[in-house]
Simulated assay, not measured.
Amino acid sequence: MHKTLIVTNDFPPRPGGIQAFLHNMALRLEPDRLVVYASTWKRGREGAEATAAFDAEQPFTVVRDRTTMLLPTPRVTARATSLLREHGCTSVWFGAAAPLGLMGPALRRAGARRLVATSHGHEAGWAQLPGSRALLRRIGEGTDTITYLGEYTRSRIAAALTPDAADRMVHLPPGVDEKTFHPDSGGAAIRAELGLSDRPVVVCVSRLVPRKGQDTLILAMPRILARVPDAVLLVVGGGPYEQDLRKLAHRVGVADAVRFTGAVPWAQLPAHYGAGDVFAMPCRTRRGGLDVEGLGIVYLEASATGLPVVAGDSGGAPDAVLDGETGWVVRGGTDDAAVAGTGERIVTLLQDLELRRRMGERGRRWVEETWRWDLLAERLRALL
C-alpha cells in the first residue's frame, strides 16, 4: 500500500502560514497512508504538553524529533530513513525544500520512489547567494519535483536549478478553507466587542514584523483620517515589531485610531477578518531580497471573507490578488510615495461601498474557483 512520509519543521502547534499549509494538506491525505516526522515545537513542559495534545488529536501518525529544528544531519537522515522503512512509505514530501530536501538521495536509496519538495519564500532568497544556491541545485537534482507558490518564487528558484530540474517544477500554493473564511464569519460581533460597530475599519491580519508593512498603514493613517475622520486601523496578530508599531502610532499622532488585538487564536481569525471593511497589508521586500513575501495567504483569506484587499508588491504577494478586480497592489515601503499610494487606495475603498462590494464578491468567487484546499490537495496526491 502506498504511504507517504512528511518530513518537516513547519507543523502545528507551531504557529504560522507554512504550518497551516502543511497541516491542511495532511488532513486531506488518507490518514492510514501518512506518517509525519516533525521537529518539536518548543522545549519545556508547556511546549511538550501542547505538542502532545495536538498530536493525539490527529488522524495520522506523528513522530516528533527531540530537536526544535530538523536539519539534514546524519542523525536526522538516519531517523527519517528508519521511519520510511518501518512504516513502508514509498513517497516523501519535504515540507520545506531547503534544507530538508538535501536528504532526498539517502531516502531514495532507502526505498522512496517519489520525492516532492515544497518551496516557500526563503528558497528564493537561497537562490541569490552562491553557497546556498549550490545547495538548492543539489536539492533539485535529488528530488522528483520542487513545488512553488507562484511565478515570483518559481522564476528565482528555477534560475538556481539545472534546466531539467527547473522543467520539473510544479505549482502548489496553499489553499483557503472557504467554509471557514466567509462573509458571515462573525465580524459584527468582533466590531461590537471592540466598540467599532459604527466606524469604517481597515483590518490587517498578520504576524507583526517589518516586512508585513503595518508601519506603512500607521504612517498612512493621518492621510486616511483627513478624508475619513472616523476610520480605524485594526492590527490583528502578535510579533516582535509590536512595541515599535505602538510607539510609531503615538509619534504620528494616530494612537486613538489604531487598535492592537495581540495574538488571536486561529479559530477567531475568520471573525477578525470579517470585522474589517477593507483588508490591507502593504508588504515590502527587505535585506536585498532575502526577506520577501512568498505568497500572502492572508489576502486570499480576506477575499474569501468578502473583503477588497490592498497588497504590497513584495515577492509573490501580487499572485494572491487580481489587481483591479479583487483589490489593488501597491508599492511597499515607508517613503512618502509608498505611504501616499497605500493611503489613497484605502480611502477610495472606504468611500465607495459599491466598489467594496464588487471587489469582495469577485474575490470570493476567485477563491471558490481556484484556491480551495480540496483542489490543491488533489494536485499533491498526484505528485506523490
Rank of each mutant, 00 (worst) to 15 (best):
H2Q: 14
R138Y: 09
G333E: 02
A382Y: 06
P12S: 07
E46R: 14
T90E: 14
A192E: 15
R64Q: 13
V298T: 15
I6H: 11
W328M: 08
S206F: 00
N9Q: 11
W373I: 01
G142S: 11
T8Q: 12
G262W: 04
G88F: 03
M281T: 04
A53G: 06
T145Y: 05
Y152P: 02
L172M: 01
G104K: 11
A189D: 12
T261N: 11
D10G: 00
L102W: 13
T90G: 11
Y37M: 06
R345S: 06
A20L: 14
A124L: 05
V205W: 02
A255R: 12
F54T: 08
I297Y: 06
I157S: 01
W266R: 15
A127I: 07
L219R: 08
R199L: 03
M1V: 11
P318H: 07
A275K: 02
Q128L: 15
I190Y: 02
E378Q: 13
R358P: 02
A280H: 11
L295D: 02
T261G: 02
G315H: 09
V116K: 00
G324E: 08
V329R: 10
A50P: 01
A26W: 00
L100Y: 06
T261L: 08
G142W: 10
E344T: 10
G125Y: 01
D291M: 06
P229F: 13
L27Y: 07
Y148H: 11
Y299I: 01
A98K: 07
E378W: 05
W366G: 09
L322A: 14
H23V: 05
I297P: 06
L383K: 08
T261M: 12
